[in-house]
């Protein structure tokens, strides 16, 4: 049996990649990107989409490489075969509710570096959304 390591999952599995795909977030997210963009293209009668820019927060549990991999796999032979999926990674920032200090969170350490309070609010890093599309106008 061959061991396959799925991006986003740490444990090697003897299952085939095909079987494992349906339990992955990244495939489901790739599909929802296509559904959303497809809808927008139809609604606005857009020319071919060259790029889709997606913002992925470090807390979103999405592995960017796995998302691109799945997007490319399922857009082969579709109108999005030539479309590039661009991922903008967003790092984690927080704001301390006790002292008001704003800081970046590294290694998921959620204590305020200034006053040691645990009452911190994440201000960015949880996003998972499409930012914009790019289309080519030939005229």
């Amino acid at each position: 049996m061959t061991q396959i390591l799925i991006p986003g999952c740490s444990i090697p599995s003897a299952m085939s990649l095909f079987q494992r795909k349906d339990v992955m977030h990244e495939l489901a997210i790739a599909q929802s990107i296509i559904t959303a963009v497809d809808g927008e293209v139809a609604r606005q009668s857009l020319p071919p989409v060259t790029r889709i820019v997606v913002r992925v927060g470090a807390l979103s549990d999405i592995v960017p490489d796995a998302l691109v991999f799945n997007f490319e796999a399922i857009t082969q032979d579709t109108q999005f075969a030539q479309t590039k999926l661009v991922i903008e990674e967003v790092d984690v920032k927080a704001h301390c509710k006790a002292c008001g200090h704003k800081f970046a969170i590294e290694n998921l350490f959620f204590l305020c570096p200034k006053c040691d309070s645990g009452q911190v609010e994440v201000t960015q890093g949880e996003e998972l959304h499409i930012a914009y599309l790019e289309v080519d106008d030939f005229n």
């Binding site: 929802s32 990107i33 606005q44 997606v54 998972l128 959304h129 499409i130 289309v135 080519d136 106008d137």
Partner: peptide, 16 residues
């Protein structure tokens, strides 16, 4: 000419 089209679409997975 490339043209940008804003699309604020939140993505949720089937699992969620």
């Amino acid at each position: 000419m490339p043209r940008q089209i804003p699309l604020k679409e939140k993505l949720t997975s089937e699992n969620d």
